[in-house]
Write a protein that binds this DNA or RNA. Structure first.
Lengths: 253, 253
DNA sequence: TCCTGACTTCCATCCAGCGGAATCCTTGCT
DNA sequence: AGCAAGGATTCCGCTGGATGGAAGTCAGGA
């Protein structure tokens, strides 16, 4: 048996442990073989390390033999201070927006070139949206994304345009020329509204949330049926909620 | 320099990596030294492994030099299927309960001998409660806990009584003799209601959530001001919500 | 029954991780 | 400024735990 560590993988043990965790970012349940493939590890190494994950409780193995993210990781994850604080402060305001509209209410932050949804409240008859908590969409493809992009450092826009060779959704702008004036408009209006832009028959209003340093750290939005586009209460309420959350975060004036 | 691996720690690298993560289960922000102490690792080892965590993004280092749980772990954690599915299904029902009561609405599961809160919706004027998402309380100390305990295997009760030598809260029952009839009562009523039992001036109603195998997998509750204890709508609504969530999970009849 | 694919166990090799100690950096006190 | 104390970082020679190919086991399908 020639099983020395010899040449090959330059990764440290810790990196391999993390690679296994990363395997779950693209799927909810995986077999050992799938984990090994995604993490690019030999089956036997994956087997051993996954066993350590399972012993710890970060990954659980179901009766069907498939591995899933365990409650240990869930408990750890919800301790992330940024998400925890923001969510805690924002939730009552999101409730208000939900009661007003009975539609989708979103809370999101920027994560690289994407929007990361921290919270979503959906009415039973709300417009179906692709976003789900923990999921990521490109910055230019949603209302909250545009708001976050509008108040991001300009380099980010260049990077985004460069990384988006093709259109993501039918009505989405991806070129410099289309996006730049739109963002300027959003900045001067203080928020973003759109009709039938991201999703068919939908109307969205999104506004920025600022912290005590006046930096935009998150965004709230309502995504409603298009026939509400003439209702002035929606943009108004989103703006009020965003300012309320900002104040609760220590923002002044 | 005699820095060999020699005798001492029997833990594998992966276990040390996890020990570092566990350090954050008791505090939101830690210095390197604190992490090393909690994980029982030499400072230099902790330093190296924490650096790997930071590189991966599971832990972030703030401007103040303190380490916190990062968004990478948050994103991974919310992928835990049990929490994700339950939360997604239950949220609309929790909203309904919140709108009815404007009080604390809880969704919780059993985690060992404790209750683990998956979700909490709190009104601005709700009774202050200790529970927070991701936090754990003993099973016998809360309404949802009693419900979960009532439908748990009996061995669990023995274990719980054995592990609780003293009273946790003023009005909490911890002995076999007190707890057993109470649980029987809860089972026959199908839910648990209590006044001034867990917290002063509070009234709570909790009901079990069942999945397609008819097993109790979670519990919902309202914790309201004590003056609502005569309002029959609260227990009723909690029961209806619990059955609604159960049905949405595939439970029949 | 045989075959296929997925999972589990084994073990000789050897280098990646180890951690004590020295060093650097920051903060607070005199 | 000078000093002390505590925390963070870097160094480096030693060695035993991690490694992964291969063989063995198991389950299901043809």
């Amino acid at each position: 048996m020639s099983g020395n560590r010899a040449a090959g993988d330059e990764r440290s043990v810790a990196e391999k442990v993390f690679a296994i965790a990363d395997a779950f970012s693209s799927a909810g349940e995986l077999s050992l073989t799938e984990i090994a493939q995604r993490a690019e590890l030999p089956l036997s190494t994956a087997h051993r390390l996954v066993a350590e994950w399972v012993e710890w409780g970060g990954i659980v193995r179901g009766d069907d033999g498939l591995y899933r993210v365990g409650m240990r990781l869930w408990k750890l994850g919800v301790r992330a201070p940024t998400a925890r604080r923001l969510r805690g402060v924002a939730l009552p305001f999101l409730e208000d927006l939900y009661e007003l509209s009975r539609e989708n209410v979103h809370l999101a932050v920027r994560d690289g070139l994407g929007v990361l949804y921290l919270e979503r409240i959906s009415g039973r008859s709300a417009v179906p949206v692709i976003s789900d908590i923990g999921s990521r969409l490109p910055l230019h493809a949603t209302g909250v994304g545009l708001v976050l992009l509008a108040w991001s450092p300009p380099e980010l826009l260049d990077e985004l345009v460069a990384s988006s060779p093709r259109k993501y959704l039918a009505n989405t702008m991806t070129t410099d020329a289309e996006l730049r004036p739109r963002l300027a408009e959003i900045r001067s209006a203080g928020m973003a509204t759109s009709v039938n832009e991201m999703t068919q028959d939908s109307f969205s209003a999104a506004a920025p949330i600022r912290d005590h340093t006046d930096a935009v750290v998150a965004a709230v939005s309502i995504v409603a049926h298009a026939d509400r586009s003439s209702d002035p209460r929606y943009p108004l309420a989103v703006g009020v909620a965003a300012r309320g959350i900002s104040r609760a975060l220590g923002w002044r004036s």
